[in-house]
Design a protein around this nucleic acid. Structure first.
Length: 381
DNA sequence: TGAGGTGACTTAACGGCCTC
DNA sequence: GAGGCCGTTAAGTCACCTCA
């Protein structure tokens, strides 16, 4: 790695980018959290799941609608899809404008269900990833920009069910000056663990002998109970609405930061997360450092739009941030897609699978593909 | 009338301080 | 050292206003 640690990289960012902030290290740490989110999003996009993704959508706890949690990325069953096109004269592409497209008028979208402040592509070519157009009872419509060339914006509209089949949460916690082990880590771990353990119908329980068990209540009040990962595999492979209807695969992505030890030598906080999410991925120091060096600190010429989007977003003045998981400069989006496509093999190595044991990223991708391909209208009926 | 800017507000994530 | 709490920073939503 070109840098001794991510902590050193954070200090470099603090000096070079966040010099205006009252607490430069804190601002740089906050931005590193954003980078972890962006890396996760573009990897999912590279995997082909973009048209199923919602961002920061409130998700109720299982059988407890009173409490909702905004989850970073949720992957939803797609009931339908439409393709629409707009000319560059039509910019900005607001939710209202998209909902009024002739391809969508037969649906009869009620005016009051259309999102007021959502813009898929603004006049200054800022893209909104996963732009929600409207909520229609159990479904919501999300727009995704496929490409924008020769004056034509081609957009995909996904009809997504409100109940996701998978969620992703990203966490980063830094290391304090002069301290090797961060006390605050347990707080972040608890926060993530709580959400991971409360949203799915597949619940975790502990046997007296220490084994992890899983249980799902059936309609008749009886329980399907067995060793957790066996039941998880059974649910993913099944087509049984009783098992699948409220099941959510939970995935956590945590970045290394020097005080969670190594991926092999887990400390308490990492163990809490590993036993709370179905999958826990560890984004390595080397990975995040490579991303920052390649795209933000010393980018090749073709990646300069990414660096420019970052620098224009963090100036100390009030500007629209064009380098987040939601809003990103269109030129930076294109280069990020290209970077993730060209470097796919290396990027796969940035992630270490902490849990489940003996599994790899290809298996996670396969599980997600299996889930997205289910006959969801029948399962939800 | 609709696009775009602004400010109030909520939610979340960060590092660091404080207590035990 | 462990863990609770806090101030700062930032993202996102929404209502409201201005202006073409």
């Amino acid at each position: 790695m070109a840098y001794p640690s991510v902590d050193q990289l954070q200090k470099l960012l603090a000096k070079e980018v966040f010099h205006y902030a009252k607490d430069t290290k804190k601002a740089a740490g906050r931005a590193l959290g954003t980078f972890v989110e962006i890396i996760t999003f573009y990897y999912l996009k590279f995997w082909g799941f973009e048209r199923y993704i919602a961002i920061e959508r409130p998700l109720p706890e299982y059988a407890n609608d009173d409490l909702t949690h905004n989850v970073e990325y949720s992957l939803h069953p797609a009931y339908d899809k439409k393709m629409v096109e707009f000319k560059d004269d039509d910019l900005p592409l607001t939710a209202k404008k998209i909902a009024g497209h002739k391809e969508l008028t037969p649906i009869g979208i009620p005016g009051d269900s259309i999102k007021k402040s959502k813009v898929l592509l603004s006049k200054d070519l800022t893209l909104r990833n996963s732009c929600t157009i409207c909520d229609l009872r159990d479904l919501f419509l999300n727009a995704y920009l496929d490409n924008f060339s020769q004056g034509i914006a081609r957009c995909a509209i996904s009809f997504l069910h409100r109940k996701p089949f998978a969620i992703f949460e990203c966490k980063r916690v830094g290391v304090e000056e002069g301290v090797k082990k961060g006390p605050q880590t347990i707080e972040k771990a608890k926060q993530g663990a709580y959400v991971a353990r409360t949203v799915s119908s597949l619940q975790k329980m502990r046997y007296a002998d220490g084994r992890l068990g899983g249980l799902i209540e059936k309609k008749d009040g009886t329980f399907c109970l067995q060793e957790y990962y066996s039941l998880l595999a059974k649910v993913i492979a099944s087509n049984d609405p009783e098992l699948l209807a409220d099941f959510i695969l939970t995935i956590g992505v945590v970045s290394n930061h020097g005080n969670w030890f190594t991926s092999e030598n887990h400390n308490k906080e990492l163990k809490v997360l590993a036993q709370s999410y179905d999958w826990l991925l560890f984004l390595t120091d080397e990975g995040i450092a490579q991303f920052i060096d390649d795209l933000l600190l010393h980018p090749k010429k073709e990646f300069s739009p990414v660096r420019n989007a970052l620098l224009a977003s963090y100036t100390g003045k009030k500007v629209v941030n064009k380098f987040t998981k939601v809003k990103i400069a269109l030129s930076a989006d294109a280069e990020l897609q290209s970077y993730f496509s060209v470097n796919a093999q290396a990027i796969e190595g940035w992630f270490i699978v902490i849990a489940p044991a003996q599994k790899n990223l290809a298996m996670l991708r396969s599980e997600l593909k299996t889930l997205k391909s289910k006959d969801w209208p029948r399962i939800h009926s």
